[in-house]
């Protein structure tokens, strides 16, 4: 079996920051802050966060914040929960959440909760269990869960549970591994995992492993490295990770590396990107691959970062 090209991945991430003339970076300008979170968290798991100019990152993150308290995906972009969580996560990586006006940020988030307990992603009102996770994870990192109606939020998530034990984006929507991560993560953070049918969901999740060892997101779909995060973290949160063949999954992730130039792709031989590099490395961390920092499956941040936040 191949090995994790940790140094190459570090280089790959560091050079994304400097890259010019890249159409991909132009198209992702609006979610730059998500990209920064993926890259920085990967570096931290690889033990190389110090290679980044912390001050520059932090001042840029803070300049993405709006009057409302929410964060945009880049300077001058409108605020959304998607970017607000990434901003909080980045600040958490650097142990800098204290520079935030926490009441203000948490008020922004809490005003996005709807009567039925669900969350809108921004003032335009799109509802999705992804946003429930974003809100709950953000507020928990800021120690401000008391700002929302947690009971109602949990109730809404449970209403999205399907016959296969999984969860969708809204009540009745098809189970999808990404949505399952969001719902199980939110339930884990709020101490409500007892609402999950762990054995039923665990079986559905372990059925996601296909012959190549990779995981897919729904039945009859192709495997993709990103599910090494969504499926695996969910299995760990519900304590059923031993139901998959972990060795085969490690092999699949390693096969998706670009050994020459660094980075990880969705499937072997595809083009790499920072998103899949994060999911690959984070997945390997969940699989206890040697030399990697442990990552928390619910908060998607290194365990030492979480401990620093909650055990102080």
């Amino acid at each position: 079996m191949g090995q994790l090209a940790a140094e190459k991945h570090t280089k790959y991430i560091l050079q994304i920051e400097k890259k010019k003339d890249d159409i991909e970076s132009a198209l992702t300008e609006h979610l730059r802050i998500n990209g920064a979170y993926w890259g920085l968290t990967t570096l931290d798991i690889l033990g190389n966060l110090k290679a980044v100019e912390q001050e520059a990152v932090i001042s840029w993150v803070m300049s993405c914040q709006h009057e409302s308290g929410g964060f945009g995906g880049n300077i001058g972009h409108d605020p959304h929960l998607l970017y607000t969580l990434s901003a909080i996560q980045i600040l958490s990586l650097f142990n800098k959440t204290q520079i935030l006006n926490i009441p203000k940020v948490s008020t922004y988030i809490s005003t996005l909760q709807n009567k039925d307990g669900s969350f809108s992603g921004d003032k335009w009102g799109e509802i999705d269990t992804r946003f429930s996770y974003l809100a709950i994870c953000s507020l928990s990192l800021l120690n401000s869960l008391d700002k929302i109606n947690v009971e109602k939020a949990v109730e809404y998530i449970i209403s999205c549970k399907n016959l296969d034990g999984g969860f969708g984006c809204t009540p009745g929507a098809e189970s999808h591994s990404g949505q399952i991560f969001c719902c199980v993560g939110a339930l884990a953070i709020t101490g409500c995992l007892h609402y999950v049918d762990k054995d039923l969901l665990g079986w559905w999740l372990c059925e996601r492993q296909v012959k190549s060892g990779g995981l897919n997101g729904r039945p009859e779909k192709l495997p993709d490295v990103c599910y090494s995060w969504w499926v695996l973290s969910s299995l760990i949160m519900i304590d059923r990770v031993d139901w998959i063949d972990k060795e085969k999954l490690v092999k699949f992730i390693l096969e998706c590396q670009d050994i020459e130039n660094g980075g990880i792709s969705d499937r072997p031989d595809d083009a790499v990107d920072v998103f899949h590099t994060y999911f690959g490395v984070a997945g390997l961390s969940l699989l206890e691959y040697p030399g990697l920092k442990a990552i928390d499956p619910a908060y998607a941040l290194p365990v030492d970062v979480i401990n620093r936040l909650f055990l102080k």
């Binding site: 132009a26 300008e29 730059r32 001042s59 840029w60």
Partner: peptide
């Protein structure tokens, strides 16, 4: 033009047309 802040962490090069459109949009 896009303000990437004083010390851009992730400076971006855009296609000229896209950049112009976004400059007018801003």
């Amino acid at each position: 033009p896009q303000d990437d802040g004083p010390n851009p962490v992730v400076p971006i090069a855009y296609s000229e047309e896209f950049a112009e459109t976004m400059d007018y949009f801003r």
